[in-house]
Structure formats: structure tokens, C-alpha cells
């Protein structure tokens, strides 16, 4: 009896309990609220994702390095050894861009399928579905961290220092990347529920996108110098590259990690290559802050669209 009474008094009075309303429309504010309330789920989803992926193998997460390492090796082989682009420390230049790009590819292509892949829970448990897409940002961040660590180790081994004074810009850049990929992933994950082949289109599109981002080539050396003289409707053609929000992020990473704007080529003529633009630190900061703003706005729009589409998830799956 005593126990019963004790537990009775423990119940929160009805009037003081949190109120949740289920209806066709949902405001962005209430979306944020419920995402915030289930934030711990994000962590569990991220770790369970990694666990599932690598549980089957003994080497575990080490496998996550396999793919990026292979990609890096191939581009190095093709552009440095076969094409002989003559860029010294090309591995670091490549790594800077691939770090960012692998994040994009991991987060965007995984989020696209995530709601459909997790149909089992989406149909049975109520939780903010946005978290599913965000969890892929989390997993991609983990892989990003590992790759960054390996890159840093390589830089120590070859005695190549980053620009220490600009290192603090990288977190801002990474934040922008998370916001942008989060927005794209969120949007695509909802669309994919209604049109299941979206993910195939996304994979093709990502491939195209990769070549439009200065990762295996230098923006300054290849794009800026060659396209600057072409003007269309008053716009220098090279500026069009900046419609791609990943370009400035990649360039920030290249600036900080690769550091050298002008390098002497390893080719016999030892010509001077202009790898990076010589923008001031301030303009890198401004550029990244703008990107954070753009990312945040995109995320808001994506949340709004997702909120519209998620109402029918459980029945479409």
C-alpha cells in the first residue's frame, strides 16, 4: 500500500505535463523542439550505424579507411604519376579536398536512403524523423575525424605544417558543410520515400558534382586563370564555380592544410604553379560565415519541406 501511494504521488499532475499535439501541420519551432528533446537518440543512431556497418569484420572501423585510401591512391596515381601534374606534396592537396568530398558523399548518399532503409522503426515508433537524416551527418563526421587524423599524421611524417593561424577557420567551414549537407540530405531522404529511384539519380549527380569541385585540380591554377577572361552577361565564368557551395569549403581546407599559394613544380622545367588564390585571412572568414548563413537558411527550408512530406511516411513505406 505504501509503495502504491508513493508511486501515485510521483506522477506529474496532468496540468503540469508536457503537451504534444499531433495534427497535419507542424511548425518549424515544434520540429526543433522535438528534435532537441530526442537529441540523445542522435548519438545512439550514429554509434549503432557504425556498429552495424563494421561489426561483421574483425578490422572494424579500419575498413572505413579503405575506401578513402583507395580513392586517394587512384587520383594520386592518375594525376601525379601518369598525367604528371608536377604538384609537390600532391597527397596533401588531394587529401584536403577529399576530406570534404568524402563527407559530402557519405552524408548525402546515405541520408537519401535512410528513411526507406529504416522503415522498420519509422512505421512503428514515433520520433522526430529528421534525426535519421541528421544521424548520417554524425556518422560522416566520425569518418571525417578519422581521415583528418590520418592526414595529420601524414603531414607530421613529411614535415608539412598547416597554416596554424588559420586553423580556427576549419571548424566554421565544417559547420557550414554540416548545415549544407544536412539540408540536402534531409530534403532527399523525404523525396526518396515517394520516388524510390532518387538515390540512383543522386549517385550519378554526385559524380558530376565531384568533377565540378576543385579537388583533383586547383581552382586557381586551372579554373581561375583559364576562365577569368571569359565573361558572360557581365559575370566572369570562373565565379560560376562558387554557386557550388562545396567549392569554397574545399578551398578553405586546401588553404589551411596545403598552405602554399605558389609552389615550384616537380616537373623538369620547375615552373611556378599558382595553386591557391592569395586571398586574405579575412576573406576566408567572411566566405565561410556567409556559407554558414546559406547553410542555415537551406536547412530551415529543408526542415519545412520535410515537415510537409513526413506526415505520410509511415503509410508510404
Amino acid at each position: 500500500m505504501i509503495k502504491e501511494e508513493a508511486s501515485l504521488s510521483l506522477r506529474t499532475p496532468v496540468d503540469e505535463r508536457p503537451v504534444r499535439i499531433v495534427s497535419a501541420q507542424q511548425s518549424v519551432v515544434s520540429q526543433f523542439k522535438s528534435i532537441w528533446e530526442t537529441r540523445e537518440l542522435l548519438r545512439h543512431l550514429v554509434f549503432s550505424e557504425i556498429k552495424i556497418k563494421y561489426k561483421a569484420s574483425k578490422l572494424g572501423v579500419v575498413w572505413s579507411m579503405f575506401n578513402p585510401a583507395l580513392t586517394l591512391a587512384i587520383y594520386y596515381l592518375v594525376f601525379h604519376i601518369i598525367v604528371n601534374n608536377g604538384v609537390p606534396q600532391f597527397v596533401i592537396f588531394l587529401s584536403a579536398g577529399l576530406l570534404v568530398w568524402n563527407f559530402v558523399i557519405n552524408s548525402v548518399s546515405t541520408s537519401t536512403g535512410i528513411v526507406v532503409d529504416r522503415a522498420g522503426i519509422v512505421k512503428k515508433v514515433a520520433f522526430p524523423r529528421e534525426i535519421l537524416a541528421f544521424s548520417t551527418i554524425g556518422t560522416s563526421l566520425v569518418y571525417f575525424g578519422i581521415q583528418l587524423g590520418v592526414t595529420a599524421l601524414y603531414m607530421v611524417i613529411v614535415h608539412q605544417a598547416p597554416i596554424w593561424s588559420m586553423l580556427w577557420i576549419l571548424p566554421i567551414s565544417l559547420l557550414a558543410l554540416c548545415l549544407i549537407c544536412g539540408a540536402i540530405g534531409l530534403f532527399l531522404s523525404a523525396v526518396n520515400v515517394y520516388m524510390r529511384d532518387t538515390r540512383h539519380f543522386v549517385d550519378v549527380f554526385l559524380m558530376l558534382w565531384f568533377w565540378l569541385t576543385p579537388i583533383v585540380y586547383s581552382y586557381q591554377h586551372t579554373v581561375a586563370t583559364k576562365l577569368h577572361s571569359h565573361v558572360l552577361l557581365g559575370i566572369h565564368l570562373n565565379d560560376i564555380f562558387f554557386i557550388n557551395p562545396v567549392t569554397p569549403i574545399v578551398m578553405t581546407f586546401q588553404k589551411v592544410l596545403y598552405a602554399h599559394a605558389y609552389v615550384r613544380a616537380t616537373t623538369p622545367d620547375h615552373s611556378i604553379l599558382n595553386m591557391l588564390p592569395n586571398w586574405s585571412e579575412g576573406s576566408y572568414v567572411t566566405m565561410n560565415l556567409i556559407l554558414v548563413g546559406v547553410g542555415a537558411a537551406a536547412l530551415l527550408v529543408a526542415l519545412k519541406i520535410f515537415g510537409r512530406l513526413e506526415g505520410n511516411f509511415a503509410e508510404e513505406l
Binding site: 506529474t12 496532468v14 505535463r17 508536457p18 503537451v19 504534444r20 499535439i21 499531433v22 495534427s23 497535419a24 507542424q26 519509422v122 512505421k123 512503428k124 515508433v125 514515433a126 513526413e310 506526415g311 505520410n312 509511415a314 503509410e315
Partner: peptide, 19 residues
Amino acid sequence: KCICGVLKPTSGQILIRGT
């Protein structure tokens, strides 16, 4: 499912107090 929030009603609303 509507009460749990897995499905959203086409119209009308459901108010839930508490966990």
C-alpha cells in the same frame, strides 16, 4: 498510430499530455 504520432491525421488534432 495517430495517437502515438507515427501517422499524422489528415485533419483534426490529437492532444497528448505527458510521456
